[in-house]
């Protein structure tokens, strides 16, 4: 029984390796590059020939003129996606949360008595979350409008344009893609 089993095992190993490790992925690459070229290559957004980012990968926005995404444990450094991995009773977590809230309150004193949306000062699971909650975007809209000198209604319309609802009205959460929003924002500034 041993010879056929050992020989069979070796042939099986190589066969499965070739099929599953090489043929299958390469086949899928070929097929999907043909079917969905945009998506298969990372949903990249270009201006002219320049790639300015991926629709799915968040980036770091700073300053009052932009909508900010969620805090990121990797600073939106896409080569190392990570979460903070801080436990719920962690002192470091508590410090982070307090610090972020304090910064916001400093810049926008009207927040002092308000509760913040859950995603606003918490870091995401991947560190590259491109979305924020609708409440988050609506809270930032007046600040951005003021900073850019745009009518609030226009900014809110842009927010609505970048908003995606639940899938089938049921699954997931309504969300606003920060990059899409900011790119639209940038285009709308140019007269």
């Amino acid at each position: 029984m041993w010879r056929p089993i050992a020989g069979g095992a070796l042939r099986m190993t190589l066969l499965v390796w070739v099929i599953c490790g090489l043929a299958y992925p390469l086949l899928e690459v070929g097929v999907n590059q043909a079917l969905f070229p945009q998506a298969a290559n990372g949903s990249l957004v270009r201006i002219g020939h320049r790639v300015i980012g991926s629709r799915l990968i968040g980036e770091r926005f700073t300053g009052p003129a932009w909508f900010h995404g969620r805090p990121s444990a990797c600073g939106y450094h896409a080569m190392q996606s990570e979460a903070s991995n801080l436990g719920p009773l962690s002192r470091r977590l508590r410090d982070h949360l307090w610090a972020r809230r304090a910064r916001l309150v400093r810049e926008h004193p009207e927040l002092a008595t308000e509760r913040l949306p859950a995603d606003m000062i918490t870091s995401s699971g991947s560190g590259l979350d491109p979305d924020i909650s609708v409440a988050n975007a609506e809270m930032q809209a007046p600040w951005v409008a003021r900073a850019r000198g745009l009518p609030l209604a226009r900014v809110q319309a842009l927010v609505a344009g970048a908003t995606k609802g639940r899938w089938l009205g049921l699954f997931g959460e309504p969300r606003v893609n920060v990059e899409v929003l900011n790119w639209a924002l940038a285009r709308s500034v140019a007269p």
Binding site: A118, T122, D131, E173
Partner: peptide, 13 residues
């Protein structure tokens, strides 16, 4: 317009 709860380490979508 927001999901509430413990969003530490969770994705918005």
């Amino acid at each position: 317009g927001q999901m509430g709860g413990n969003m530490v380490g969770k994705e918005t979508r």
